[in-house]
Design a protein around this nucleic acid. Sequence first.
DNA 1: ATCGTCATTTGT
DNA 2: CAAATGACGATC
Length: 651
Amino acid sequence: MSSPATPVARVVVDLPLPHLDRTFDYLVPDALTERAVPGCRVRVRFAGQLVSGYLLDRTASSDHTGRLSPLAKVVSSEPVLTPEVARLGRAVADRYAGTLADVLRLAIPPRHAAAEREPGVPVPPPVPPPDAGAWSAYPTGAGFVSALADGAGPRAVWTAAPGPDWPDLLARAVAATRSAGRGAVVVAPDHRDVARIDAALTDLLGPDQHVVLAADLGPKERYRRWLRVLRGQVSAVVGTRAAAFAPVTDLGLVAVWDDGDDLHAEPRAPYPHVREVLALRSYLDGTGLLVGGFARTAEGAALVAEGYARSLVPDRAVLRAAAPRVRAADDAPGGSRGESDDAALARGARLPTLAWRTARDALRDGPVLVQVPRSGYLPAVACARCRTRAGCADCRGPLALAGRAGAPACRWCGRAYPTWSCGECGATQVRAAVVGAGRTAEELGRAFPSVRVVSSGGSTGVLTGVDSHPALVVATPGAEPVAEGGFAAALLLDAWALLDRADLRAGEETLRRWLAAAALVRPADAGGRVVVVADASVPAVQALVRWDPVGFADRELADRQAAGLPPARRTAVLRGTEDAVRDLLGLAELPATAWVLGPVPVGDGQVQAVAGVPRRDGLRLAAALRAAAGVRSARKATDPVSVHIDPVALS
DNA sequence: ATCGTCATTTGT
DNA sequence: CAAATGACGATC
């Protein structure tokens, strides 16, 4: 028996230390040479300990000058780390100043040996090209779908027309991709949306062409389904966050629905965002990309602005026909002089008269959605008189109350404001943005005594759907059920609580939630009405009234450009003890274009610093921070610094 | 955790 | 001036 041609295994060790984020060479013993295939899980002796890893590939020789240790064990020959996912994982780690091992922990589910032993399932038959369906309501929609059916990789940021069609449109994009013999990945923020897309795919293609990957399946079922994807037995995947890394063979399309939802932001290091992972994937593998939602994020607008993706929007006439009539009612409840009966009742419900009348009239025709804010947001600080959000004069960050009775301070740059005056009206008093949500259902019940009131979200659990009978449906954002035949009306309440969030994306996030609720309402011609209780001069309110998420996103992007915020600039938020953060910043050779704010205390003995660079220097920023983290970890520096690139909430 | 490297100490 | 010792850093 001669020795094999490739006796060396390049191994990624599963350790979280940045300075060990590279491959290590091991000698493949003759006894393991058959089983030690590229992509398989292995165990190796590393610095005296037995650690897990992935065999990246086999080579004839090693650059390493010292002696090579033997591979200790091949855990399984299943090639779970495909070359595509290895490359994607490397790119995601580089983008987010993280390690490949950390990304692979997100991308590859834990092994379940019993699931691995099970026999495969038959590959489903080919799919015929679908017709464009409701995509024909979009001037470039049919072209997008037919490009996918031709096996091309079109890229689009899609702003969906209101209504219940969107899962079907996603399913048609997947079907077109499958008809070209290629695979697809669709990621949605939560299980309800995954279930809707799953249902649409089943309607269009039957149950066998796709698989649902979700975190709540249990380890065995999760791994079983993931293996079906890995083994090429199924080529269309719909799922939550982690599905973005699904090892689909011959991938032709990656899609994300509602990319503004925070659930798309991974909470574990290195904190990658689904949209960014999929955009990278489309770039690396030349696949189609579909970034969709009723709203458009500034990041989506940036993909269009830089020419990476086309804007996919409904024809203006179609939009007019599909959207409800939206009006703004300002905050003041009830009428003024010579109060009518209506106004008195409205006052009891703490509703503007317009909102109350709209609900009353719509309740003759069907269910009415009432969107109320979730409780528990960090209170930002606003002017006590005119309610304008208090912002930092230096960096435009949000002001928040530092302690119980402390002065307002900027949450980004730390500047304190012992005295403050409102830029709009000159008042010097501030108030915390108070969130009052719980009482709403109760008060509405009193204002509409004969009407059924149901709740969704919060402590009551989430409803998926309601029937077409009159009812008040009180829901928190993201928990709105679908109504059979659409809601007759929606009231969007306590807008200031949403707009006051101490967050860079407050306006964008507020509009996203409003659009999601308003999209569940019947078209204007069918009587659909929406009342948003907010000052009509607020840009998010205007964008809702005119149903113009694209214009809003373009302005948001321009504002962020002017303010030097993501996505125009790439930012890194560093958190840890003061010594650790200063140590890291001292070691990091940041690009010359970088600015640094802070560090400022964020409580718990931790501080935060923010570094920003122009977008084109983003990889350099991440590389510098990762190198500095590597130096620290090589020195066995204890107190860690978390590095978070372009966090969703810059606060 | 363990091993190798290299500077320093120690014994002749 | 060679062998022994130990601090340090890399870890294949």
